[in-house]
Amino acid sequence: MIDALSYGLMGLGVVFWFWGTWPLLGHRSVLYKLHSLSVSDTLGSMAVIVGLLLKIPKEWPLLVLALISLAIWNTVLGYVLAYCSTEGGGND
């Protein structure tokens, strides 16, 4: 039961990864790509880590730390990249 749930979460995370990375290939603006990347990439990574957490619960401090740093850093990084790319280059 737990095993199936963990595999399901990891599969969902990989699907989110593809969903977030596929718009990167098109010729869209930076902010559009950043939006899809920051939302679904972070969600996919967090789903993968939760799946790993269900699989091996004894390493929980490490994986919870990974979850927290992933959530905080990727949010901040999204803001920083959006700020830097619109302020300097003028490419919306």
């Binding site: 990375t21 930076v30 790509k33 990084l77 490419n91």
Partner: peptide
């Protein structure tokens, strides 16, 4: 360069 930076972040 910013598209490359996005790819780097990913």
């Amino acid at each position: 360069i910013w598209q490359k930076m996005l790819a780097f972040a990913s």
